Amino acid sequence: GVSSLYKDGAGCGACFQIRCNNSTLCSSKGTNVTITDINHNNQTGFVLSTRAFMAMANHGMGQHILKLGTVEVEYKRIPCEYKNQNLAVRVEESSQKPNYLAIKLLYQGGQTEIVAIDVAQVGSSNWNFMKRNHGAVWDTSRAPNGALQFRFVVTSGYDGKWIWAKTVLPADWKRGVVYDSGVQINDIAKEGCFHCDYSHR
């Protein structure tokens, strides 16, 4: 997605319904996609895989839409749905014990953005912040020893809240392995109050 959708990485993992405006070629349902990277091309908002691009088409029109290459689209953010799947933490290959830890978040549900992550040893209240490295990857050069817990600041619209995953990584965590956080995120974005009148009548 473009920078306004990617949001310096906070939009990575966001889900959208996209449909093209040509009713002859395209269905009104369109297709659902997930933002996975930033698009530096200012000529288009989304770069879709061939399969996703063709999925916008009416039955039998996939090759016709593909020949166009680009189409006018409309889109809206929708909740990501990962049935019976908790938020997962993948330890990236760049992680180096004992201090450097890089994680990627997977299966982030709802219409949410994770805007901050802290990490601590299980049972400790000595939290270290992690920084966004890129996209859904967060890292720290001050990883605690032992089994690790995480807390996430999750926003949906204007509201933010802490979600605490009490035991995520075992003390012997391994690079390239995906660990279940034990928490599900499924909040739906709330609309802000625009032109609200709080005056007494």
Rank of each mutant, 00 (worst) to 15 (best):
G157L: 04
Y100T: 02
V178K: 15
T24W: 04
E93P: 00
G9E: 06
C196M: 13
K166Y: 11
M56C: 11
W162R: 11
A165D: 01
V89W: 06
K67A: 13
M54R: 14
H40I: 05
P98W: 12
D139E: 15
D8G: 15
V153C: 15
M130F: 09
Y82C: 00
Q149K: 15
L106Y: 00
T140E: 07
T167C: 06
W138P: 00
Y75W: 14
L87M: 10
A147S: 15
D37M: 07
N58D: 03
Q85S: 14
Y75R: 01
A57H: 00
S199P: 03
S95W: 06
R51W: 02
D180T: 02
L148R: 15
G146P: 12
C80L: 00
V89K: 08
K83F: 09
L106R: 09
I185R: 07
I117M: 04
H195L: 14
N86P: 01
I114N: 07
I163F: 12
G1S: 13
A102Q: 14
Y107M: 06
V71C: 10
V122W: 02
G13A: 11
S124H: 12
W138N: 07
M54F: 00
Q184I: 05
V183Y: 08
C20L: 02
F194H: 08
R19Q: 08
C20K: 03
F129Y: 11
S156Y: 14
Y75S: 12
A136G: 06
S49F: 01
Y198W: 12
L87Y: 10
N133P: 02
F194L: 12
I78Y: 01
D172W: 09
G123L: 02
E81I: 08
S94E: 09
C196A: 12
E81G: 00
L101Y: 05
Q111C: 12
L169C: 01
C193S: 11
I35G: 00
A143T: 03
N86C: 08
N22S: 12
R151S: 02
C26P: 04
V71P: 02
V183P: 01
C20H: 04
N41K: 08
I38L: 11
H64V: 08
N32G: 03
M61T: 03
M56L: 15
Q96D: 10
Q17V: 10
I18N: 04
H59E: 04
V153I: 13
I65H: 00
D180R: 10
R175I: 09
T44A: 00
N133F: 13
G110H: 03
R132Q: 12
Q184N: 12
V71E: 14
G45E: 08
P170L: 11
